[in-house]
C-alpha cells in the first residue's frame, strides 16, 4: 500500500492529490449526493415548491408498472447481450487457441470492434436492418419474415441486442484467448494422451479452467449492457416502439431530462447507484482479479 521508505511529510502530497480530489468532489460526490437528496423530494404540480417526502419516490417506483417492466427488460437485455457476445467470443477463442501460428493474426482481425463507439455500432446495425433498404430485411423477406423494428417491439429489442453484443465480442475474445493461452500446454497434451478429442478437451479441461475469466467477463458485460449501451438505445430506438427497448439508463435520462420528473428520476439514479455499487463489490470481492495472463 505504502512504500516502506517515504518522503517526509509536507504540503506536497496534498497538492498532488488536489486535482483528482477536487474533480471527484465537484463532479462526482456532490452531484451524487444531490441526486440522493432530490430522491427524497417531490415537486408540486406547478413546479413552484418542493416537499420532503422521505421514501415516497421509491414507493412510487416500486409500484410503477412501467418501471418494474423496465427493470425486467434491462435484466433480459443484459443477460442476452452478455450470453450472445461471450458465447460467440468463447467459440472463436476456442478455435483461435488451437492455431499455433496465426492466432495473433486472427486476434488482430477480431479485436478492433472494441474501438467502435456503441452508438456507432447501433448506426451500423440499424442501417443493415433498415426496413425498406437494409440487406437483412431484404433477405428475411424470402424467409417469410417481415422486418420492421419501428413497429415490432421484439424486433427492436433483437436489433439493439445484436448491436450491443457485436461490439463487445472483441473484448470477450481478447480475455478468453489470453486465459486459454495461459493454460499450460502440458495439461492439454495430457488430456490428449488420455484419449480426449478436441471437443471433449474443450468442455472438460479448458472451459472449467477458464471459469474465473467467464465470471469476470459476466460482471463486466453486465455493467456494459446496463450503462454503456445508452448510446445504442438513444440513437436507434429512443426506447421504442412504445417502451419496448426502454432500459433503466434510458429511462432515467428520459424521465429526468425530457420528462423533467426530478424526484422520480433522482430515485431511479439512486437505484442505479446501488446496482453499480453491488456489481463493483462483486467484481472486487469475488472475481479472481489476476486471471493469470
Amino acid at each position: 500500500m505504502l512504500k516502506r521508505v517515504h518522503f517526509p511529510t509536507s504540503a506536497l502530497p496534498y497538492l498532488l492529490v488536489a486535482p483528482q480530489i477536487l474533480i471527484t468532489l465537484v463532479f462526482f460526490i456532490w452531484p451524487a449526493s444531490q441526486a440522493m437528496y432530490q430522491s427524497f423530494l417531490i415537486e408540486d404540480a406547478f413546479g413552484l415548491g418542493t416537499e420532503f417526502v422521505w421514501f415516497e419516490n421509491f414507493q412510487i417506483l416500486a409500484t410503477d408498472n412501467h418501471y418494474l417492466a423496465s427493470f425486467q427488460r434491462t435484466a433480459v437485455f443484459s443477460l442476452l447481450v452478455a450470453a450472445l457476445s461471450m458465447g460467440f467470443a468463447l467459440i472463436l477463442a476456442g478455435f483461435a487457441q488451437r492455431v499455433v501460428r496465426g492466432a495473433m493474426f486472427y486476434r488482430t482481425l477480431l479485436i478492433w470492434p472494441y474501438a467502435v463507439a456503441p452508438v456507432l455500432a447501433g448506426a451500423l446495425w440499424v442501417f443493415m436492418f433498415n426496413p425498406t433498404l437494409g440487406i437483412f430485411p431484404y433477405f428475411l423477406e424470402f424467409a417469410g419474415i417481415t422486418w420492421n423494428h419501428y413497429l415490432s417491439g421484439n424486433q427492436a429489442m433483437a436489433l439493439v441486442i445484436l448491436a450491443a453484443a457485436w461490439k463487445q465480442v472483441a473484448y470477450n475474445f481478447l480475455f478468453y484467448l489470453a486465459a486459454m493461452q495461459s493454460i499450460p500446454n502440458s495439461v492439454i497434451e495430457a488430456a490428449a494422451i488420455d484419449g480426449a478429442g478436441p471437443a471433449r478437451r474443450f468442455w472438460t479441461i479448458i472451459f472449467p479452467l477458464i471459469s474465473p475469466t467467464t465470471f469476470f467477463l459476466l460482471v463486466i458485460n453486465m455493467v456494459y449492457a446496463f450503462f454503456e449501451t445508452f448510446g445504442i438505445i438513444h440513437a436507434v430506438t429512443q426506447g421504442g416502439p412504445g417502451t419496448s427497448t426502454t432500459i433503466l439508463v434510458y429511462k432515467v435520462f428520459n424521465d429526468g431530462f425530457v420528462g423533467l420528473d426530478l424526484g422520480g428520476s433522482a430515485a431511479q439514479s439512486v437505484v442505479l447507484m446501488v446496482l453499480v455499487i453491488a456489481m463493483t463489490v462483486v467484481q472486487f470481492r469475488f472475481v479472481e482479479r489476476k486471471v493469470a495472463y
Binding site: T24, I29, W30, P31, A35, F227, V249, G256, S269, T280
Partner: peptide, 22 residues
C-alpha cells in the same frame, strides 16, 4: 477511498445534478 468511489458513480447515475454543476 474518495477516488475509489468514482468507480461506482458513472455519469449515467448522476446525469441531472452533474449537468447542473457544469
Amino acid at each position: 477511498w474518495m477516488i475509489f468511489i468514482t468507480l461506482m458513480l458513472p455519469v449515467e447515475v448522476r446525469i441531472l445534478p452533474t449537468f447542473e454543476v457544469v
